[in-house]
Every structure is written in structure tokens, then in C-alpha cells.
Design a protein around this nucleic acid. Sequence first.
DNA 1: TCAGGGACCGCAACCGATTGCGCCGAATCT
DNA 2: AGATTCGGCGCAATCGGTTGCGGTCCCTGA
Lengths: 348, 348
Amino acid sequence: MAKVKLADVARAAKVHPGTASRALNPGQRGQVSADTVQRVVRAAERLGYVPNAQARALRTSRSHLVGIVVPDITNPLFPPIVRGAEHVLTAVGYTVLLTDTDNDRDRERRQIESLLGRGVDGFIIATALWDDPLLTDLAEEGVPVVLTNRCASGGRWPYVAGDDQAGVRLSVQHLTSLGHTSIVHLAGPQVVSTGRERARAFRAAAKEFGLTNGDARVSVCQSYSEADGRSAMEKVLAKGGAPFTAVVAGNDLIALGALDALAAAGLDCPSDVSVVGFNDMPFVGRIQPALTTVRLPLQRMGALAADLLINELDNDEKQDAPTRTLLGVDLVVRGSTAVAARPRGRRR
Amino acid sequence: MAKVKLADVARAAKVHPGTASRALNPGQRGQVSADTVQRVVRAAERLGYVPNAQARALRTSRSHLVGIVVPDITNPLFPPIVRGAEHVLTAVGYTVLLTDTDNDRDRERRQIESLLGRGVDGFIIATALWDDPLLTDLAEEGVPVVLTNRCASGGRWPYVAGDDQAGVRLSVQHLTSLGHTSIVHLAGPQVVSTGRERARAFRAAAKEFGLTNGDARVSVCQSYSEADGRSAMEKVLAKGGAPFTAVVAGNDLIALGALDALAAAGLDCPSDVSVVGFNDMPFVGRIQPALTTVRLPLQRMGALAADLLINELDNDEKQDAPTRTLLGVDLVVRGSTAVAARPRGRRR
DNA sequence: TCAGGGACCGCAACCGATTGCGCCGAATCT
DNA sequence: AGATTCGGCGCAATCGGTTGCGGTCCCTGA
């Protein structure tokens, strides 16, 4: 069965294609008599008419396509975000173009350009660097962009994410209330906002809860991964210095790596060292020990990012002050944190 | 900066747009002199020309868009598949339209129709039911489809997945070799191929390894979820019957649910009951007890599915015999399986 | 020298939907 | 009754590439 096109519907309803188009588009329906509208709509239904999105996009230069850019869809952090965004977007007639940049900047740029060639109306980007030339390029071309998960410097883009600062503060508060007086922060990469922000928040919280400088060390991981979490933890253990009894990880992956390093060093979690993660990835509550971590409303983040983008797309007026939303987070206390033991660490 | 279009390039190269088009398309390049090709290509580069995919698709009725349909991107099974497929597809100029059906048939149909309206060239579908009207409809419309993860009856579609039968056989073999003589299979839903196939394989393997009927029970879960796994396990425990010492779960999620039910019933895994899962989802090796499970090459599955689809799209000749590929699987032995204890179970 | 044959390239139609412009007939006003 | 307005709809251009057809020019062979 050949695709039925607008002209077919028009013929069936005995009107001109232009009229059929108006009858089918709620916005222009006022220009057509109710009677005609009904005839056209009926005909369209009877024939099973599905408008050709390509043609429409070509003419209107609105594709109703949205690109979602994630660094690695395999990282459990992102699927819920994608899902939340997708549900909102499809509900209002947008379609999602997903692209996984594989944490590769060149690939990311190529992908985004390809998507632009496809005429996407806007992007939801979860891969932003703190200083990101790609973003400024997009801004110059006037492409609507909403950032999620990570933000960028300049505060130029709408943005929705979890409240990193609050999450870290909750973690530190929890640990100090358990009697921990020397805590290590295994920070995420400092080129992304979450890495910077959580590290900043850690220092602030440490000060707030009375930890002195030497007792609130920060060690930076190259990436958010188990491998880098592990090696960062190993490095801290090897270096010695003041003994510590707790670790605040930049995210759950880093926490997992840290757990490995601790176990390898013969340290037990939580009796020797408490560990808290960030993100509450699926199943981290079932690992051994069950990970205490900060829960973000990921799906809601995605949904909100989509809302923001839709809003920006529909009101083509540019708003000068981009909305920036921080969603509340919870600390989920599980088995990886416990009352501080006598201070302990690897000494040289 | 306004988008540069083909006409601009043509003007810059002092040729007709038609000629510019031919010069830029490798397939037609032979019809243009080498000198002109170079002029056009240079001009295109200089101006930063990006062809408008919509216009091209409209004219050629080839969008280079592929729809990937998954039931729930939040299920860790799917991201690797999507990733594998996406990498292959983008490498040859296709773009991925992702849609998450939320396990909702109506939603799925709407989404697919919407994607068809967008002119997708083909689909990779991971949501197939065993008897799936949606698939036959697509087949009637002549839309290329490749199935992955699950297949459908009739053997009408190209298909790539893990070797379920081999995986289950490995599991049963492993358990019997540990001395288990009474095993329960918590099967997945029987409306999807993996549920049926694994159940069938379980019965066959049980027979092969000498388990009698009463010692190879099958209980079916409504869905692949922790909740249904748990309730199925609870039901088996409540019903009593012959004591069992091992469980082969339809997938990891079901296994997790079963673990919960066992723990709630005061049974220890693995000392009282061994459990083996299926899929080797991320992090199931870190839960307590570390789950013995069957590992599928998920990313490779996605990549292969993409290869199959591309092949079908490029050779518009319909091949009468669809390729069906089963990828080899491994049994990953971890802590949730152990030598059989004395048979035990809940007795009334 | 002239017919025949390519190689190259321009012309214009076309893909399918949208929309500014303007025509026509009927209702309203004076 | 004649002028005027307005609702409803048809016409045709347009979005940006692609491609069948045919024209021009040059080269080859007799």
C-alpha cells in the first residue's frame, strides 16, 4: 500500500490540498468551515493519513526533533534521564535522537553536526564541560540547548540537575555525626561541573562541620569510573599522611573503585572506613556492603530538562535569564557507613 | 550566519546546483569532470556546507534514520545493545531514533507510527512478542526490521541474540555437577521468545542431566522484574512440594527477586539454595551473594543487529532467508551457586 | 571533412506539505 | 437596491536537494 499523502486526503474530501492542510492543523483550523474540517478529518482517518514529517520540516523549518547527548548510555546514571526526557518529549510530538559520545570530544562534535544537518530543533546535553567550546558554538548559531546533569561556566544555558552542594553537605554531616573526624574526598574530574561543585561543597561542608584542613583531603580522579576511583584511593593509601576513617566519593562508580582498593589494602568497610557515593545507581543498594549514597531524582531531571527545552522552542522569544533548577536530593543511608572506628590509615 | 545551501556552493563554484549535487555525491561523481568536482568540493568546504537531510530525504525517500525500540532503557540489559547498534549505525551515516515503549503495547504502536511518519528506513526492535501483530503489520508495509534480544514466531525476521538454549544448558549442567538434583526454573513471561525458549531449554537440559519431572519444576513470572521474581519464588516456597536446592532464573532481575524471597523465608544462598541468573547485568557480580549468571555479548548483539539492518537497507533486494544469529554465551560462576546441601524446602 | 559518439553539464520537474495572496459569493449595512 | 465587508477556499510559490533528459562541444575514425 503506497503511502497516502495530503493530496489523496484532499481529493477524497473534495477540497484543495491547501485547504486540507489548514483543516488538519489546529492552528489554522479557524480559516476553514466546520463542515469542511469534518470532511477532511474523516477522510484523513479513513485513509490512515500520516503526514510526511520530512516535507513538513522542510517547509516549516521545524523538525520536532530533539537531540539528546550523553557520554555513555551504559552508565546507569543516564538511562533514567533519557527516559524522563523522552516521555515528556514524545507526549507533545517530539522525537528523540539519541547520541552516545563515548566520552570522545571529536566524536561528539561530529555527531552534533550531523544532528544539526538533520535539522534538530534543540538539544538536551548531558556531556557539558565546564569550558565547552562546543556549547558556545551552538549558542552562536542560535540553537536552543538545555544542559542537564552537568552545567557550564557563564551561566548562559538553562540547566537542571541535582543539588550537588546539598548532597555533599548531607554526606559530610552524616559522617561527622557518626564521629568521623578525618574524611577524604575522591573528587570527579575537575573539567566537569559536578566534579568541581562537589569538591567545592566538600571543602565548605568540612569547614562547616569543624574539620581542619589536613582532615579534609581531596584527591581528584581522572574520570568517573571504577578504575580511576580505585587508583585514586590506592594513591591516597600509599601516600600515607593523616589517617582517615571515611571517604566521600565523587559518584558511585568512584565509590565502587574505592571499595575495591580498600579491600585490597585489607581495610574493611564500614568497620575501618566508611564510604558514601553519589547518584544512587540501580543496585548499589544490593552490593556488599550496601552503599550509602546520595539519591538524585534522575527521571525527573530528564523530564524537567525536556520541559525547559520545549518551553524555549515554543516561545521563540529568547528569554534573557535562563532557568536554572537544582532538584532536591536525599541521602540514602545503607551499610557502607558506620560509627567511626579508632582513626586508622596506612602509614609508611 | 544563515545556513549555507547547495545553491550557494554551486554559485561559488560557478556551476549549476544539479552539477554541484553530482560532484558532491560519490555515486554520481563520475558524471562530472575531475576539475569541476574539485572546485565544488573546495567551495563546499570553504563555506562549511552541510546538506539538508530533510530535503534530501524528501527527494530520495531514504532518510538514513533508524528506529531503535526498547521496552525500558532503564533496564541495564538494553543500554549496551543500543550502544553497540548506535556505534555501527553512526559510522556509516545513519542516525538513531530511540524510543522507549515503557512495556506498553499501545504506546509502542503510536511511537512506531510516529517514527514511520518521520520516514525511518528501518527498525531494530528489542520488544518483540512471540505473536506480534505489530511486526506483521510492519512486514506488510515492507519496512525492514531486525529483531534483537527477542525473536518472534514464524522465523520471518532477521534476528540476533544470545544463545538462550546453550546458556540454560550451561546453568543446569553447572548445578547438577555441584550435586543439585532438584531445580526450579523461574521462567520469564511466555509471550516473549526468551521466556519460552529458556523454559524449553530448561526442560530439555533437565532431562539430559537426568532430572525427573518432579525435580525440574517450572514457575512462570508475569514479567522480567524483581517484584515478579520475588512473588513467583514465594509462591513456589508456599506451595511446598518436593524440596529443591537450586533455582535457574529467567533473568537477573528475576534472580534478584528470588534472592529476596529466599532471604525472607530464612533460606541462605548459596548454602541452602543456589541461584543462577541470566544476562550478567552490570554490578550483579558485586551484590551479596555475587550472582552466578549467563553472560551475553550485549554490545556485540546490538552491533550485529545494526550490521544486519544496514545490509538489508543497502541491498534493496529482499533476501528470502533472513539471517538468524545466535551469539555464544558464557556461564560466569560466582558466589550464588555452591555444592548442594541436603535437600531442603518449605514443607507444609 | 564530416558523421558518430562520448564526456560534461544545464534545465526543470519533482518529493509532500505549508502559507501569503487574492478571488468569489453571501451576509450586512445604508 | 447597491456598496461593503468578511468568511471560506483555491492558486501557486516555496523549502533544498536530486535526477532524467537532452543539449553542447570536442575528439575520434573513416
